[in-house]
C-alpha cells in the first residue's frame, strides 16, 4: 500500500529522518516505536504528505507522492480522503464551532447531503461517547474527549490508511483499553506511533523502530525485538540503574 525508498528529511540543516525504507501492506497494523525526538511525528507527517522527503521517494498505492502531485485535484482528493492523521496534540485539529460541525467538516466538503452527514456523525458520536456533547464547542471538552473527537472526525470518512501519533498520550487506562479494542476492529491499515514499550505489543503486530540517530533500526515481529536487549538500549528505550540491585546493573523499559 505504501512504500518509502531511502527517505531523508531535514529541516533548517537538522536531519530528522535518515535513510528510511519500508513497505506496508494493506490491512497491516504497524507500531512505530522510538523515543521523543527520534522523528516519529515527522515520519507520520511525511506519510500524510504534509511535508515531503528532502531525498528519496514515497509511494502511495504505487503513485509517487510529491509536492507537485497535489496540484492534481483528483489525486489530492483521493489522498486526503483515504489517508488520515491523528496529531499528537488533538487540540490543533479542532476549529469548528460545535462538536457536530467538527465531525461534519470533511463530509460537508465531500458534498454529502445533510441527512447522510447527520447519520454518519451520530453513528460515530455514539460509538465514541460524544453524543451528549454534539452541541458544545470542541474547545470546552477535556483533553481525553478532544482526543476521541479528533479521532472520530477522521473515522467518519472511513480512511484506508490511518496514522496515529501517540494516540494514548492523553487517555486514562480505561480509555486506552477501549482504544486498543477499537483499533483492532477497524478494517483499515494503521500505523501507530508510541514511546511506550509496554503498549507496543497491544497496538499492532509489526514493529518499526526509529533510533536516536533517526534511522530505522528495526523492522519485524514485536516479540523478537522485546527480547533483544542490545537493540532496546540502542533505541534508548531502556534505562539502566544500580539502585536496589547490589552492585550489578539493572535494566528497565517504560
Amino acid at each position: 500500500m505504501i512504500e518509502l525508498r531511502e527517505v531523508y528529511y531535514s529541516y533548517d540543516h537538522n536531519i530528522t529522518l535518515k535513510n528510511i525504507s519500508f513497505k506496508v501492506r494493506e490491512g497491516e497494523k504497524v507500531v512505530l516505536l522510538g523515543i521523543n525526538g527520534s522523528g516519529k511525528s515527522t515520519l507520520l507527517k511525511l506519510l500524510n504528505a504534509l511535508i515531503f522527503p528532502t531525498e528519496g521517494a514515497y509511494y502511495y498505492k504505487g503513485e509517487r507522492v510529491e509536492e507537485k502531485s497535489f496540484k492534481n485535484k483528483d489525486f489530492r482528493r483521493t489522498f486526503r480522503r483515504e489517508v488520515a492523521l491523528l496529531f499528537q496534540n488533538p487540540e490543533v485539529m479542532l476549529f469548528n464551532p460545535t462538536v457536530y460541525d467538527e465531525m461534519a467538516f470533511s463530509l460537508r466538503q465531500l458534498g454529502f447531503r445533510e441527512e447522510e452527514t447527520r447519520e454518519k456523525v451520530e453513528y460515530w458520536a455514539d460509538k465514541f461517547g460524544l453524543s451528549p456533547l454534539l452541541k458544545s464547542p470542541p474547545f470546552e471538552l477535556s483533553l481525553g474527549q478532544k482526543q476521541r473527537l479528533a479521532l472520530a472526525c477522521l473515522l467518519v470518512l472511513s480512511p484506508k490508511l490511518l496514522l496515529l501519533d501517540e494516540p494514548t498520550a492523553h487517555l486514562d487506562p480505561k480509555s486506552t483499553g477501549w482504544l486498543v479494542d477499537l483499533l483492532w476492529e477497524l478494517p483499515c491499515t494503521i500505523i501507530t506511533s508510541t514511546h511506550n514499550l509496554s503498549l507496543a505489543e497491544e497496538l499492532g503486530d509489526r514493529l518499526l523502530v526509529l533510533g536516536q540517530d533517526h534511522t530505522l533500526i528495526y523492522d519485524g515481529r514485536i516479540e523478537d525485538f522485546l527480547r533483544d536487549e542490545e537493540k532496546l538500549l540502542k533505541a534508548g528505550l531502556l534505562h539502566r540503574h544500580r539502585y536496589r540491585d547490589k552492585g550489578g546493573y539493572h535494566t528497565h523499559g517504560f
Binding site: L50, R80, A84, M93, F105, S106
Partner: peptide, 8 residues
C-alpha cells in the same frame, strides 16, 4: 498542517 490534512 492539521487544516491541510483534514481538508479534502
Amino acid at each position: 498542517q492539521a487544516l491541510r490534512s483534514r481538508s479534502i
